[in-house]
Amino acid sequence: MQIAVKNISKDFGKKKTAVHAIKDISLEVEQGEFLGIMGPSGAGKTTLLNMISTNARPDHGQIIIDGLDLTQFHDRDQAKYRRNKMGFIYQSFELLDSLNVKENVILPLALNRSNKKLIEERFTYMMNLLNIEELSGRAIDELSLGQRQIVAAARALINNPEILFADEPTGSLDSKSATILLNYMQMINQKERTTILMATHDAFTASYCSRVIFVKDGVVFSEIVNPGQRDKFFEQIINMQRTIGGGDYFNVSQNY
């Protein structure tokens, strides 16, 4: 077991008007697992993901990764851990407009002060792996949304993260770009044994996962394990979405 989340909770707002975003959630994630976190908008998916990735601190509970309780870490150590062990893909890409594609991709390595040779090697490898060699000198403004997300994925993966966090990675993409990205993610999950935690409200996107947990009103409502067949898994996800409310067949991509 790589990640153990124990009884975490998180409130937002002041005492009287506080919103309980996460209420006493516990879960475990194995190494190399592709875990989906689903739920309707406002269910607490992103909050849960942010807490596991140390981008937000829980009010209560523990987050243990590789045997280390990250909630006890100082902000500075959390940032270091985040930089070395984790990769991030966001719906809004979070690319730095002032940097070009290459600079965006190599950013995590540069931040780690890796040597130039390693930077160039890893960059070439990632660009080949994701098949985006021709984008390397381009400015971010010149890329399509799909290309931006692939670049964001390349940045997330360049320093071989042990855990990849993806928050609605296909949210801004058309179905074709979404499929390409998801295939890459699956490939990385299988080839590099990278653990992936992905928050999504889209059943098609979730069907790439090996397990999906459903969050509603800040608690884990249910979970489904991929039986090995994606179409069957997809049906199960849709049914569960129907049960909890917040998803239906209209979320299904035409490409499926």
Partner: peptide
């Protein structure tokens, strides 16, 4: 967007001190 960029740096693991 300049403030957003600093926030992005924080999200991807740049230390606050940096």
């Amino acid at each position: 967007y300049q403030s957003r960029q600093l926030r992005t740096l924080q999200k991807i693991g740049v230390e606050e001190s940096e």
